[in-house]
Amino acid sequence: MSARVLVGVKRVIDYAVKIRVKPDHTGVVTDGVKHSMNPFCEIAVEEAVKLKEKKLIKEVVAVSCGPQQVQETIRTALAMGADRGIHVEVSGKDYETLGPLQVSKILAALAKKEEASLIILGKQAIDDDCNQTGQMTAALLDWPQGTFASELAFEADKLKVVREIDGGLETIKIKLPAVVTADLRLNTPRYATLPNIMKAKKKKIAMVKPADLGVDVSSRLEVLKVDEPPTRQAGVKVETVEDLVGKLKEAGRV
């Protein structure tokens, strides 16, 4: 097998950071906030690198769309073992409205350009939680898709994907080329250590513009309002069982 795998990585606000909504409700505060690679993208990168280590594929290419800073995310992917990176430059207004459809178009165009035979993505990003990019990419390319993968194996010229579905697992076999999206249990991503980050600086990151790929990144979606989730109501302490039963009756629970 001498295939090339394309892995999409997204730069998001770090999972451990408390998200704050902008006072004017147009979005969330991103300035001066720690960013890192989307956890599900880490799983996708790890899976691709593992396939390479097993010599089932030839090359792992990490792709990210966004402003200059996404190069850090690509660098993390390179430190984890990806061979080279592609930075699709999208900035300013276009980046603010960049959604799954636009990214899918970019990924689909790149997959054709790079002659990739497999695309591995995270199932969703922890910032917008769209869970659409993998599905749309597969649709645009007219490739089969294995979403929510918790196990991946090559079987002859096909790919066996075990999928996480409600209440259990589903095993499917799909033809290559294909799109796979990684679920949480697919693997344990390795840590991008300092020595590896340093070594990754020698790896190449190519710069591409969406226009070079013939992709229009304009969006037809408009964000009307971004709100904080409702805060949880405080509980009450009750002294006796009678009190408790009384309160429950009041609330109509018994």
Partner: peptide
């Protein structure tokens, strides 16, 4: 200790994801 820290960070992230999405 490095190995332990890497394991700690992984577990912390895994647990956060599991709590949020499952």
């Amino acid at each position: 200790v490095i190995k332990e820290l890497e394991a700690l960070y992984y577990l912390r992230k895994y647990r956060a994801m599991k709590k949020r999405y499952y």
